[in-house]
Design a protein around this nucleic acid. Sequence first.
DNA 1: GATGAATGAGCATTCATTCAT
DNA 2: CATGAATGAATGCTCATTCAT
Lengths: 218, 218, 218, 218
Amino acid sequence: MNDTDHQNKDISPIAQDAPDPVRQEGTNARKNKIIKKATRLFIKKGYAQTTMRDISKATGINLGNLYNYISSKEDILCLSFETYHDPAMEWFRREGILEMEDPKEQLQKALRQMLIAIHDVMSEVLMMYRETRVLPPKFLKIVLKKEGDLVSLFETIITRGMEKKVFNVRDPFFAANMLVFQLSLYPLRSWNLKRYSREEFLALSEETILKAIVPDFP
Amino acid sequence: MNDTDHQNKDISPIAQDAPDPVRQEGTNARKNKIIKKATRLFIKKGYAQTTMRDISKATGINLGNLYNYISSKEDILCLSFETYHDPAMEWFRREGILEMEDPKEQLQKALRQMLIAIHDVMSEVLMMYRETRVLPPKFLKIVLKKEGDLVSLFETIITRGMEKKVFNVRDPFFAANMLVFQLSLYPLRSWNLKRYSREEFLALSEETILKAIVPDFP
Amino acid sequence: MNDTDHQNKDISPIAQDAPDPVRQEGTNARKNKIIKKATRLFIKKGYAQTTMRDISKATGINLGNLYNYISSKEDILCLSFETYHDPAMEWFRREGILEMEDPKEQLQKALRQMLIAIHDVMSEVLMMYRETRVLPPKFLKIVLKKEGDLVSLFETIITRGMEKKVFNVRDPFFAANMLVFQLSLYPLRSWNLKRYSREEFLALSEETILKAIVPDFP
Amino acid sequence: MNDTDHQNKDISPIAQDAPDPVRQEGTNARKNKIIKKATRLFIKKGYAQTTMRDISKATGINLGNLYNYISSKEDILCLSFETYHDPAMEWFRREGILEMEDPKEQLQKALRQMLIAIHDVMSEVLMMYRETRVLPPKFLKIVLKKEGDLVSLFETIITRGMEKKVFNVRDPFFAANMLVFQLSLYPLRSWNLKRYSREEFLALSEETILKAIVPDFP
DNA sequence: GATGAATGAGCATTCATTCAT
DNA sequence: CATGAATGAATGCTCATTCAT
């Protein structure tokens, strides 16, 4: 009731870099465990089909006790989104990609970075595509905003490349949308793409995506 | 009790076009109505959040009576997949695309056809992406098979174009997968693409997709 | 959700007088049974300590099925209040007390009427005193309004008697409040009043209450 | 976590008045604090709706630690009854009312004393009326016994007044019951009596109550 | 004494499905 | 075919109380 829900900024991956590991580490470890295990269940069975009892069993944490770490089942889903959604963009920014000079190199590096990131959490991405609907409206807005931001980032890169005449697309915003969407090819279509090794897949994706933007590629 | 929201105006169009007044028409019309209304509910609220009571209310068919037309809630989902999944490929075949000579023209026509088809049932496509997980394994296999078939079709076209040197991709199977995936851009990303009119969107999609396959396009 | 709760004007005791017993009698009978049995449980164990399972067991109606007749546990409490709260005032009005000429006779009749009515549902009155807190705010307002109306009725009677010099109180509104409160003596203090027969109790109450209002009574 | 609502200003007044600095004072102060804070919660939210966590938060005493001072939630309720129930009668006795000669003066003083006492703890009285049901049978018996004793006290006074011909009631025991009940008018009906100041209310109550006992009053 | 994580029984409510009529 | 009451297992969540530290 009068508790503030969603005090969950504390699961950011940045915490791993923090030189000060002397906190309520136990509590956080528990919380992370819940998120991780629950995410696996959401992936395997779907959010609606996963019960709190499942999560209790999977984490080994007593059902009632679970609620000392999270505030509701929905809360876990939101936390899961935060855990697997944010890092992608964090990594993106951290690499200083926005400061790169050559648009072609810039696009290529950003693209590869994202392809790898998404490939490595592909089940989570698939789950998020599926369960977005269940998010509480407030949180949904945040998620879509972040997703929109990622598109904008690529739009900026593409626009710069257009001005420098190294890229050629009819509509940078559309191209950015398509590009970001294409990043999810593997998570959403992995059942038909098993024949490719990780490296093969990354190379093929990169080439195919860039072809639509960079003339005379490769 | 005093419900009056039985908007029964949407008898399945197929039933109306059929020149054959088969006797079980009534039964079939009912079944189609159930599928259609249930699909709208699945789209709006999600499969898990839609109750049989919702479907009963939406169709105006008594809850118990519903089970005279369908055998379970899951059954309705499968029927919904069939209804909106099959036509796409049916239209595809019906147009005699497979018999066309010029690969470029062939690809272009097939692509446009599919883009239109998917754009017009985009909500249904989005729903299917979301709820695939719920399908019983047996039926899931069928759905994936069909989806794989569609990819194969495009693979065939692309391969022919490669042989005729009018297309240029590194891996036809991969290209076909990416192409089929790109078809779903609108259903899955419509929230960020509202600024485009239907025609604008179709043109942009077509161009972007072809660029990765046809050299010197347009 | 989109059902209209509290469609429960149909439990008024008047229904018993109705010459037309051809309705959804079955449903209503069930609902009344639930209210009645649940009220007994609320009386015996208290609202919070009574579980829906208790009510299911007491009524012989399956737990899930219960919800076809009522919409929530809280709903049952409200229905119970309506059932046992309203009749008192209905009876009051029906007797045409407001039209009586002689204030003394009028007050005496009204008082006796109410004493009897309350004596006969004393456990229910006690329960209502106890559980008022649990009512949803909206419904609580209605209940207090009705209670206030009853006080106003007596205030009117007393004021008229004052004008006619047959009553003597310093403050009619206060006197009416005290009078209405005194009506509940038996429900709230029955544990200490067992020694009196019903008739003894009614006579003593009437006399004691009137003494404070009518000079030289009896 | 970051709670700061520990309003610890209300150490029990009894502890402050006590001239005896017993060593377990700390423990007793804690216990009194628990009772006091819990009572406020019982008043505001009801016994069933108040959780031990609420009490822990309100007192600033750790949840587990709470059980070092009280033995159960029910125990707190009993202690609360004792705290607010006993003083009334203590004050009564302390004033030496039982030794007074003139019955009229005696009744008037006793009555006023009780009216004031109850008026000042009216929320507590209301709470006790509501939650009596929850008391364990053994303790309930004690409470009712005390309440019965209070009635007996007034019965004695009234009987003496009858013998001295200064009072006139048909049944002293009934009159005493009614009188004691009338004392609770304010706690149970305060929502309809806000228009009176404390002094107005006390005067009106006194007059109305006495009218039923003392002939030719005032 | 103090802490707060742990326990597990219990609660109101929902819902797909069945079945007698 | 149609009805709608009936079933009962399941679900998310709460909470008094205990206990190791």
